[in-house]
């Protein structure tokens, strides 16, 4: 499991216990404490081959890139598709570039009930309604091209 996935899972567990109204500062403190407590144990393990920084990631992760005119609820709609299909979010980066909406997500489909190809079809359906362009590509392609 990559560091990002672990932190994401801890954050979700904390929110589940404390409820939606928990203060972000408290959640952040708790997540940091738990992660620090786990860290020595994690470091004593052999490095995981799926660790995103060191080796090509496994083939179940997809890079989802979204570009288009800015509008209301683009991120929410896309995240909703990921939740419905049981894809877990590994990383997210969103910005407005010269007035255009740009978002890159990395999703893990290990526990998902659909393939990357099927997820692509689902996202293409919402892309039309949102008036954005969505690209879904296996993450290992990017690692092959940009990491030695």
């Amino acid at each position: 499991m990559s560091t990002e996935t672990l932190i994401y899972d801890i954050t979700r567990a904390v929110y589940r216990r404390l409820g939606e109204n928990a203060s972000p500062a408290l959640v952040e403190d708790l997540v940091t404490d738990v992660y620090r407590a786990l860290q020595p144990a994690l470091q004593s393990q052999p490095p995981s081959p799926s660790s995103a920084e060191v080796a090509p990631s496994n083939h179940t992760r997809a890079v989802i890139s979204v570009f288009g005119n800015d509008g209301i609820g683009i991120a929410a709609t896309i995240l909703n598709v990921l939740a419905e299909t049981k894809c877990s979010l590994v990383d997210i980066d969103q910005t407005i570039l010269r007035g255009k909406f740009a978002m890159v997500l990395i999703a893990d489909t290990t526990r998902a009930d659909i393939s990357i190809t099927a997820l692509k079809e689902r996202l293409n359906q919402v892309a039309e309604k949102l008036d954005v362009k969505i690209y879904v590509q296996r993450e290992d392609l990017f690692h092959a091209m940009h990491r030695v």
């Binding site: 990002e4 890079v63 890139s65 990383d91 910005t95 890159v104 990395i106 990017f142 091209m145 940009h146």
Partner: peptide, 13 residues
């Protein structure tokens, strides 16, 4: 992010 936005955009381009 383990991949930069620039790298992702380059591949898509």
């Amino acid at each position: 992010m383990s991949l930069s936005r620039r790298e992702i955009l380059e591949t898509i381009r």
